[in-house]
Design a protein around this nucleic acid. Structure first.
Lengths: 126, 126
DNA sequence: TGATCGTATTCCTTTGCCGGAATACGCTTC
DNA sequence: GAAGCGTATTCCGGCAAAGGAATACGATCA
C-alpha cells in the first residue's frame, strides 16, 4: 500500500523537518544543515530516503544540489503533506526552522541581487 | 515530538486497517480477526501498540474486549485520522474491510435484537 | 592536474519492529 | 474447581532503520 510508504517517511523528526522546510520552496543541502543544525551525513541520508520514495526530487547545480517537493505528487501524498503543514503551523520546532530559513535566505538575497553566487561562495538554493 | 509517535502508528498496513474499521465505531477483537483475516496474535499486538500510544482505548466486557478510537484525541491525532479517512475512501483494501464489517454486524444484529449475546455465543462489540 | 568544496555512499553498531509459536491470563459456564 | 473461550504476553528470529566515522564522488577553481 502506497499510503504506508508515505507514513514511513513521516515517522522521523528529521524528515518531518526537511519536508516542512521544503514546503516553503526549493532548498539546497547546505541550507538544510544550517537550518536543522544537523550533521551533513544525517541530512543527506534522510533526503536520499525521501527521494527513493518519491516525496522529493533533486537537481544538481554545480557543486550544489537543490531539493524540492515532488512536482507530481499523488493525491495521497498531497493530502498528507497538507495535513503535515496544518500540524506544523503550531509547532515550536517547525516554526523555529522556518525562522532560521528566512534568516539564511535573507543573507543570501543581497548576494543574488549583486554578485553571482559563484563569486561569493554562496549557494543559491532557496 | 508527538506527531512522530502518531506517524509511527500509521506506518503499518494492519494498523491502518484497524483504525479504518474503528472509525465506524467500537469493535471487539474477534470481529477484527474476521474482518482483516489475520491471526489473533497479530491483531492483539497491533491493538496493544495503538493503545500504548493513545490512539485507541479498550474495555473488557466479560470474555470480550471492545476497542474504540481515543475518546479525547489531540488536535494532531484528530487531523491525521481525518486525513486517513480521506485516503481510505478510495482504497480497495479499506473498502473491502468495511464491507466485511457490515456483513458481520448484520449477522449480529438479529442476535442483539433477540437473545442476549451470551446465550448465542456471539460477542456484541460493534 | 591537483586542491578544494559540497554532497553521496559505504561500513559498522545499536535499536526497534514484525511475525509466528507457545503460553499465560481473565472470565464464564458446567 | 475444572474446562473452555477470548485475549494478552513472552520468547524467539529476521529484517530494516538510525546514527556516526570514514571515504568516495562530481564539479569548480587555481
Amino acid at each position: 500500500m502506497e499510503l504506508v510508504r508515505i507514513y514511513e517517511c513521516l515517522c522521523d523528526v528529521t524528515r518531518l523537518r526537511l519536508l516542512n522546510v521544503l514546503a516553503q520552496g526549493p532548498v539546497c543541502v547546505c541550507h538544510f544543515q544550517e537550518v536543522l543544525g544537523e550533521p551533513q551525513v544525517k541530512i543527506s541520508k534522510h533526503l536520499a530516503y525521501l527521494r527513493e520514495r518519491g516525496l522529493v526530487e533533486s537537481e544538481r547545480q554545480g557543486n550544489w544540489v537543490i531539493y524540492e517537493l515532488a512536482t507530481k505528487p499523488s493525491r495521497e501524498l498531497k493530502v498528507n503533506l497538507a495535513c503535515l503543514q496544518d500540524c506544523a503551523r503550531e509547532n515550536r520546532v517547525f516554526k523555529r526552522d522556518l525562522a532560521r530559513l528566512k534568516q539564511i535566505e535573507a543573507s543570501c538575497a543581497w548576494v543574488r541581487a549583486g554578485e553571482p553566487a559563484k563569486a561569493s561562495g554562496q549557494c543559491r538554493g532557496g
